[in-house]
Amino acid sequence: MSTVPKRFEILLVSEHVEDRGGASVEDSAVRSAVVEATGRHGASGYPIYEGHGIVADIDPETRTVEALLVDGRELDYGLTALVRTAARG
Rank of each mutant, 00 (worst) to 15 (best):
D59I: 01
E74P: 08
V55I: 15
T3L: 14
A56T: 02
L82P: 02
A81S: 07
R40I: 03
E18P: 01
G72D: 10
A56M: 07
G45Y: 08
D19K: 03
Y46V: 09
I58S: 02
V35Y: 04
G22W: 06
I58A: 06
G53I: 01
Y49D: 02
H41N: 11
Y49F: 15
T62K: 12
T38K: 01
G22T: 11
G51F: 06
G53T: 01
G89R: 09
G51Q: 00
I10L: 15
D71A: 13
E15D: 14
V65M: 02
I10R: 07
D71K: 09
G89I: 06
I54A: 02
V65N: 00
D76T: 03
P60Q: 10
A29F: 06
V34M: 05
V65I: 07
H52A: 13
R40L: 08
L82G: 03
V25L: 13
H41C: 13
P60I: 06
R20P: 03
L75V: 13
R63G: 06
D27I: 06
A81W: 09
V30I: 09
T62W: 14
G39M: 04
V34I: 12
G72R: 11
P5G: 03
Y77G: 10
A29R: 09
G45R: 08
I10T: 02
D57S: 14
T62C: 00
I54M: 12
Y77H: 14
D76N: 11
G53Y: 10
L12N: 04
R7D: 09
H52T: 07
F8H: 01
P5S: 01
G72Y: 08
R88Q: 06
E50D: 07
G42P: 07
A67M: 08
E74S: 15
R7F: 07
